[in-house]
Simulated scan of single mutants.
Amino acid sequence: MLRKEQRRRARRAVVRTRLIAAGTAVVLALGAAVGGTATAMASNGGGGGSSTNTNSETFWQQLPGEVCVKPAFSSENSTTTPFVLPAIDSSRVFSKVIVKAGSSGKSVVQENAVFTTDRNGGTLTAGDTFVHPEKDSISHVIYCTVPSVPAASTDVDCTSIEFLVGRALNGSDHINVDIVYNGTRGQINVEINEVQPANGDPASTSGLYALYKFDAIGLPNVKLPISAADAAAGRIVFVYSTYLTGEWTIEWIQFNSTYFNKDRIRSEVHRVRRPAHQGSRDADRPHGRPRLRDERLVHARSRRGHPLVHR
């Protein structure tokens, strides 16, 4: 009789286990239907923010320019009352949503469900709804946003180059410039790199710096920090004229995989002269660009296939 009772208890335990597994599968399916797929999880680690507490907004602030918000929201029945993403300023976009429920290893496998897409794998937008994939109740929610990134574009003249890459900057971004500098032909470069303090790299709020390489034309290289705002906006501003004297011609430029004067056409040149006394007033101009005496150069930027000459 004792062995029969033990077998009955074992069978009941198996049935309970299967029922729990089935219920979890239903909740997981509901989570995918109501919110996006939980693409990443974290319990007591995995964040890159300034806090070690996963209940804190700053724990989840990991991207350049990212800001996370913890609204006053909780739900005992997220099936009927899911979290709804609110409207945000047009200058920012959603980066992720963190839905907290239960306690990892106890009531749930992972307490923090992190969503980076909507239910269809698309961009997170206001009005998207979210539940926790393992538990019907929600203890709190954190959503994060990053600055909207301007469309990719380039702006070139005889003093500076501005490159908007169309996304946040990373270590793959670069600018290569073929130049004739005081009669010497060479290439100057901009490389975006991660800051390594051991290498003497400059401190940077973005964790990135720009390496200006002038050694091909006999000038020293320069390292400059990149601000968090420029990194988030995908902006590189290369005021190369600050480091040059005399005369130069810009013949060709590569911006990642796009080009200025790709075919190296030389049918027309554009000249510009600096005023004899620029003074400190130029420091107040956008990106520190020198004031140009020949303002026709501004219009010359949009003409394709022509080298730029400074004398």
Rank of each mutant, 00 (worst) to 15 (best):
R273W: 01
R235V: 01
T58Q: 12
L308F: 14
A25H: 02
G46S: 05
A22H: 11
H140C: 05
R303D: 09
R303H: 07
S90W: 01
Y259I: 11
R235S: 12
T116Q: 09
R12I: 11
D173E: 12
S241I: 07
A216Q: 13
V34T: 14
Q61G: 03
L169N: 09
T81R: 07
T58W: 02
T80D: 10
G49L: 06
L63S: 15
N199W: 02
R296F: 13
E295Y: 14
A168I: 05
N199M: 11
G31P: 05
R271N: 09
V222N: 09
V14L: 13
P202D: 03
F163A: 01
R281T: 07
P202W: 09
S75A: 12
D230Q: 13
P64N: 10
R12W: 03
R289P: 00
D157E: 05
V97C: 04
N199C: 01
L219G: 08
I192E: 04
V27A: 07
E268Q: 12
N199E: 07
H306I: 15
A229N: 12
A101G: 12
L169G: 08
R271M: 06
S74M: 07
A203V: 14
F73S: 03
V108E: 08
I20W: 02
A87M: 10
Q6D: 12
W252K: 15
S302W: 13
A198T: 14
A216Y: 01
R16H: 13
A25R: 15
K223L: 10
A38W: 09
P275Y: 03
K100R: 14
E191H: 08
T116P: 00
S206E: 09
V15F: 10
G246E: 07
A21F: 03
G121C: 10
A229W: 00
M41G: 09
P286A: 06
S206D: 04
V67H: 00
Q278H: 00
L244D: 09
T79R: 13
S43E: 11
R119W: 00
V26C: 05
V272H: 12
G45C: 02
L297M: 15
A87Q: 14
S302H: 10
A210P: 00
A283C: 02
V195I: 10
K213R: 13
R12F: 07
H299L: 14
V222Y: 06
I88Q: 11
I175W: 03
W248L: 02
L224K: 15
E134W: 01
I98S: 02
S104Y: 05
N77K: 06
S148V: 08
R235M: 07
S103P: 01
A32M: 11
S56G: 06
G218C: 05
R185S: 15
L224T: 12
K223Y: 03
S302G: 15
A29W: 07
A233V: 03
G200L: 08
G36P: 04
R274Q: 13
C158F: 01
R3Y: 04
G127E: 04
V222D: 12
